[in-house]
Design a protein around this nucleic acid. Structure first.
Lengths: 208, 208
DNA sequence: GTGGGATTTCAGAGTTTTTTGAAATGACTG
DNA sequence: CAGTCATTTCAAAAAACTCTGAAATCCCAC
């Protein structure tokens, strides 16, 4: 590279370095999110640069295979955290990240619920089919079992509802939610021992 | 322990089956939480039965090795979702699960933040060391970079704060938080059921 | 159609995580 | 303390997961 202004050249290097480091961290974290490292890195790269990039650019910058980029990009499109862009000058597909962080965090929350909580709820529904038969000869054991399953289900249903409300595609407000909570007084450890929330089972199209 | 009259015997089988299925689901989910399958299963077993159990009972019921049970139990103790119990009759250690679901969910949230968000925040701090040097010759690119990193950091910091507040060891209230949110009006949107009946059983979003 | 690149797919190689099992250590009792 | 049984540790095996690369497919301009 020439030195148009030596200061700019140095700064540019720093900038690239910062970007790379961001990409690396995000990638490391990906594994912890149940996302593959590459998928996380691709996303990080598109997010941090803000530029539309094509497959080859991504391959080169991250040093991963074409196939891997293809699969990662596909998944990110499904998650709707990146989108296709057509550059008039070029025949290739370009990809660009959604630039609002909150939409990104929302997507993560949404996907996690879909992959973690929902299947569990389905399973609980299924299990509930087995348990209720124990109604006539209700041993203590049987009643306890049902009670515990319901407790778990209630918790997970609440979480799902909240996620749909705040992180759903309509997306009004993960940020809103956060702010609401941040300023809410955290009720002192007064044990409000009501186990109120009743059976508002909003059974989605689950199995069984 | 139970005293099965022939009707009870059938019910008892169902009960065991329901327990096993719960354990299996929880275990499957474990991998998705970054918990090993066995660790999740041990916890599920102790939770769903509610009984104190010793290493051998757990081994037999789950069909895993002694070493594996030992390590899983240790981790669960560290997370404080189970505790040691001494039975006067027996020399072995027995383990028993915390029976409040919310304490369990809280533990999960707490651990996840510790393992996912905190390291990311540290990384962002480090990256922020590189970026600021780009202040004088501020290209648009440089300013964008800083702005994006800050946006991410803000988001993650908010999440951390909230988790400490609501899921921290003092633990006042994941449930409280959920309730606060559940009744809060969401932004401009009326609480209509527009997309309520969404198919829960949906294919995983194309993740490799 | 046809040619030439862009994209997708997927079997197998490579990597990481989890589990096993047996030896080492610890803990209690007589 | 010596014996017995419980628990922990850890190297190596097994399982799960991710990535590669080349062949197959798609897509568009001519």
């Amino acid at each position: 590279m020439p030195n148009p202004s030596s200061t700019n050249a140095r700064d540019h290097a720093k900038l690239i370095q910062a970007q790379d480091q961001f990409v690396a961290s995000w990638g490391r974290m990906g594994s912890v999110w149940g996302i593959s490292r590459t998928m996380a890195e691709v996303h990080a790269l598109l997010y941090i640069t803000g530029e539309p990039m094509c497959t080859d650019q991504i391959m080169d910058r991250l040093g991963v295979s074409r196939g891997n980029v293809s699969m990662s990009v596909r998944a990110l499109l499904d998650w709707s955290v990146i989108e296709k862009v057509r550059l008039p000058s070029d025949r290739k597909e370009y990809y660009q990240a959604e630039l609002d962080v909150w939409s990104m965090l929302r997507a993560i929350a949404r996907e996690r619920i879909k992959r973690e909580v929902d299947p569990m709820l389905d399973a609980l529904d299924e299990i509930a089919q087995l348990a209720p038969e124990v109604k006539s000869s209700d041993t203590q054991e049987a009643r306890d079992l049902k009670q515990r399953i319901d407790a778990v289900r209630e918790g997970f249903e609440l979480i799902t509802t909240l996620t749909h409300k705040f992180a759903g595609p309509s997306g009004a407000g993960l940020k809103t939610a956060a702010k609401l909570l941040a300023k809410a007084p955290v009720g002192s450890k007064r044990p409000t021992r009501t186990h109120s929330a009743k059976k508002r089972t909003k059974k989605n199209g689950g199995q069984a």
